[in-house]
Design a protein around this nucleic acid. Structure first.
Length: 422
RNA sequence: GGAGAGUUGGCUGAGUGGCCGAAAGCGCCAGCUUGGAAAGCUGGUAUAUGGGUAACUGUAUCGAGGGUUCGACUCCCUCACUCUCCGCCA
């Protein structure tokens, strides 16, 4: 959410920022509504002031004067009601518009229309050249008996899968490795709700824009999280933190649920795009300082890179262009991991800076050292997400005989197993 | 699912129709005191928003929304959440 004052003072910048992100909003419409509402609001407040004044005179007045005063109050209330009627109709419209406004991207973010215009920042590792004809993870997984799409679909419908035996173990191994890695970096582990209130979804910016992407349980008015960032960030909603305790570095490992609406026919095969997956997420609550926020952003990013390097998976980092940024994101880097079956890099990680966009919605504030109150800044990052990483591991480490070797950091988590065999 | 209790500022907690934006305490800030600190003393200290260069001042806010009333933290209704007990259950 943007501060209405900021919008007033920087209307052009906000409009340009929304245009750059491809958000079809009309800032002048917001301002026009605001301009309409404010004078009415002022008039209403004046009437309220009069009413309050007269009301206070009533108990002090003589009995015969009281009725007169009451009549005056009544007349004022009539005027108030007609004003209120208009305001009650306009305000929700303005609020809805405000909830849909995007936060402009940072000044150094590359301008672009969609993910094709993301800018590669760096590459790590060389994609492996196979001396045999490499298979995709579906073939590898089914041959090893660790992946079962048919039965996954039988049980849960399209985009569902079952990991079996070494597949299930490998999932746990990778997650445990990633979790330990992140916790060692000083991120406090949390186990958080998967089913959350609408406020948490609105607060983190997933509602109302993006409502279609979430599973929602109508009966209880609860949403399934698409990322544990939702729970982690909302934890501190309506709280007053202190500057001394910031930054707070949190992590959590949860299952994530995504409807993937509007992706029919896209990546339908395999583990790339699924409705349910496990992910280790990191969140930082920071002071309201763009520069520090940027530092944390790169700290987060480098942790994800560290994980991929430890897993010996080639990747590249892209600076996400304006058109591919989410509503609240100021800056985002995606990490794309090499996936032989795609003969290219596929998105596995995403690191985002939000400034106060989420914290304003969630009302997360902190007391500065000199006693002022400020809205915190938030950031979040994927440490590691199953099953795309499994996909990458299987495909990158496959051998001619159909077995899959494992990077050494996983060996202890696989009970000493160094290679998956049929 | 049934019964009951509760939700007040950064925190604890008082307040049952106007004298309440709210006692008291804690915390925090400033001053006094001190070699320095602690203690003590004195004063200040909610949020949002409008107007004003400012001093200041209007409005709203005591979980949310509605109602009664000239006037609601206080009375009534609805909802949300928290807690306790009972039932059921992983």
């Amino acid at each position: 959410m943007l501060d209405i004052k900021f919008i007033r003072q920087n209307a052009q910048q906000v409009q340009a920022g929304n245009d750059a992100k491809g958000f079809k909003v009309d800032v002048s419409q917001v301002l026009a509504l605001d301009d309409e509402i404010r004078p009415m609001q002022q008039e209403l407040e004046q009437l309220q002031a009069e009413r309050n004044k007269l009301s206070q005179e009533i108990p002090k007045a003589q009995a015969d004067k009281r009725e007169l005063l009451k009549k005056e109050v009544l007349a004022i209330k009539v005027k108030m009601e007609s004003l209120e009627a208009v305001l009650n109709e306009r305000r929700p419209i303005l609020n809805e518009l405000l909830l849909k406004l995007a936060q402009p991207a940072g000044p150094d973010v590359p301008f672009g229309k969609d993910d094709k215009e993301n800018v590669e920042v760096r590459k790590w590792g060389d994609p492996r050249k196979f001396a045999f004809s490499a298979k995709d993870h579906i073939a590898i997984g089914e041959k090893l008996g660790i992946l079962d799409f048919e039965r996954g679909v039988k049980v849960a419908g399209s985009r569902s899968y079952i990991l079996k035996r070494d597949g299930a173990l490998l999932e746990q191994a990778v997650l445990r490795f990633g979790y330990d890695f992140v916790v060692k970096k000083g991120f406090a582990p949390h186990s958080v709700p998967l089913l959350v209130k609408e406020e948490a979804m609105i607060g983190t910016g997933y509602f109302p824009v993006g409502r279609d992407q979430a599973y929602f349980i109508e009966k209880d008015k609860l949403a399934l999280i698409g990322t544990s960032e939702v729970s982690l960030c909302s934890m501190h909603a309506n709280e007053m933190l202190t500057e001394e305790e910031l930054p707070l570095r949190y992590t959590s490992l949860t299952t994530c649920f995504r409807r993937e609406a509007g992706t029919y026919g896209k990546d339908t095969r395999g583990l790339y795009r699924v409705h349910q997956f496990n992910k280790i997420e990191m969140v930082v609550f920071a002071v309201a300082d763009a520069k520090k926020s940027e530092e944390y952003h790169h700290e987060l990013l480098s942790i994800s890179e560290g994980i991929l390097q430890a897993l010996e998976l080639p990747y590249r980092v892209v600076y996400v262009c304006t058109g591919d940024l989410g509503q609240g994101q100021v800056r985002k880097h995606d990490i794309e991991t090499w996936m032989p079956s795609r003969n290219g890099y596929g998105e596995t990680h995403s690191c985002s800076t939000f400034h106060d966009f989420q914290a304003r919605r969630l009302n997360i504030r902190y007391k500065t050292k000199d006693g002022q109150k400020a809205i915190a800044y938030t950031l979040n990052n994927t440490a590691l997400a199953i099953p795309r990483i499994l996909l990458a591991l299987l495909e990158n480490f496959q051998e001619a005989d159909g077995s899959v070797s494992l990077p050494s950091v996983l060996h202890p988590y696989m009970m000493g197993k160094t290679r998956l065999r049929a």
